[in-house]
Design a protein around this nucleic acid. Structure first.
Lengths: 214, 214
DNA sequence: TACTATCTAAGTATTTATACGTAATTCGTC
DNA sequence: GACGAATTACGTATAAATACTTAGATAGTA
């Protein structure tokens, strides 16, 4: 079984390097190389690789859009992002789109690259260690932050906030909780102050950010 | 270098099986086994493993809570979830908490288990293939759905919706877009109808669900 | 026991949002 | 050039949310 890989990067040297590394294995083969997003999209119409190595910084099409278009046409395509962009938001977006892996050019050695291709081919996801650490600490930070916010709210305030996100009016919330509308208004005002929100929109936004729903 | 693993599962047979598999390798060692969440939390206070294999269905503490508490106390702990639960929401939650991997008991063979431990130890994330597929198709389905919703909105409606999520009032939005308040109200009404929302809360909720922000 | 936080709820007032109908203007498309 | 969709906007209402103050009841804690 040979894993058929396509490589897309606008730097010929990178392509050459990747080709050399991959050619040194027996079970992985580079079947196509592309230097632009347009060329890639066209090429995929002719021949589909098992795994696609993709640089996010191509000259013609933004990485996010390119990835989205590929996965839209070929939902099962195994894409491994190989880039120098260290932006976290970007990884989030790609992973959400459904990429199988994310590697940094700066600290990816040969064995790691090979391993990533193998994993992507098997349908396992792969995240560069340093990125993984970053994401993890990011997630933990956000989590703690949101937990801090949630812990600042009283039980009743949480009840009211939850019902607000469910599109109930103060009247309906009051009926739901068996209290007067004035009480609900009071809790609502507390929420606005505690969460530094200006209005209902702000309340819902923060409620969703801190995953208060469900 | 030996990878030190702790195993937590309420079925003695599972623990025995895992121990047998892991003992057959030279570079991984089971240093502790626990059968309850309470025992695990106590044990971690005495000795920290490199990787923690964790069943989500323990008798005393819900899996999500247990994971959150462990990662709160030991943010660098490499946790691999090993369970029979196939619920997608659950995986989402665990991954968001910061687990390194997620395996299904039903279709995890020995080599895959060993590989997952090795990866978690290296700080790479690992997702069972069948789960990975499910998540991928889930993501794509959601994505298409939200894109469908977004595509139903006109440019101006999207503008207004975005500004609503930024907590602006109709007056402020009108000023921002250089149109009258009545126009904004009109767009807002269209949004309410198109998105089947009852009020501002509903609009913000749907806007966030379909990732219209940023 | 005393203190504190929370939940409850009232008054009073202003600002915003929701709901429907109508319609002129612009802009891309057939 | 005709057509439809989108943007713009007004009139007229009612419903809802926001803002600030005060205060009794209750429950947990030092």
């Amino acid at each position: 079984m040979v894993i058929r890989v396509a490589v897309t990067d606008d730097h010929p040297m990178v392509i050459a390097g990747l080709q050399h590394v991959i050619d040194s294995t027996t079970h992985i083969k580079v079947v196509n190389t592309y230097s632009t997003g347009t060329a890639l999209l066209e090429g995929l119409g002719r021949e589909l690789p098992d795994v696609l190595l993709l640089d996010l910084q191509l000259p013609d099409i933004p990485g996010g859009e390119l990835t989205a278009r590929i996965l839209n046409s070929y939902p099962d395509m195994r894409i491994v992002i190989l880039t120098s962009l260290e932006a976290m938001d970007c990884i989030d977006e790609m992973m959400q789109l459904g990429c199988m892996g994310y590697l940094l050019k700066s600290n990816t050695d040969y064995s790691r690259l090979i391993r990533a291709i193998e994993q992507a081919w098997r349908g396992e996801s792969f995240l560069d260690e340093s990125l993984s650490r970053q994401m993890l600490s990011n997630i933990i930070r956000k989590k703690k932050q949101s937990e801090l916010s949630v812990s600042m709210l009283t039980r009743r305030e949480k009840d009211v906030l939850k019902l607000i996100t469910e599109e109930l009016t103060n009247q309906e919330i009051a009926a739901h909780l068996s209290v007067s509308v004035r009480t609900v208004e009071c809790h609502r005002l507390s929420l606005l102050h505690k969460l530094h929100a200006k209005n209902t929109a702000g309340l819902v936004k923060r409620a969703m950010e801190m995953r208060l729903l469900n």
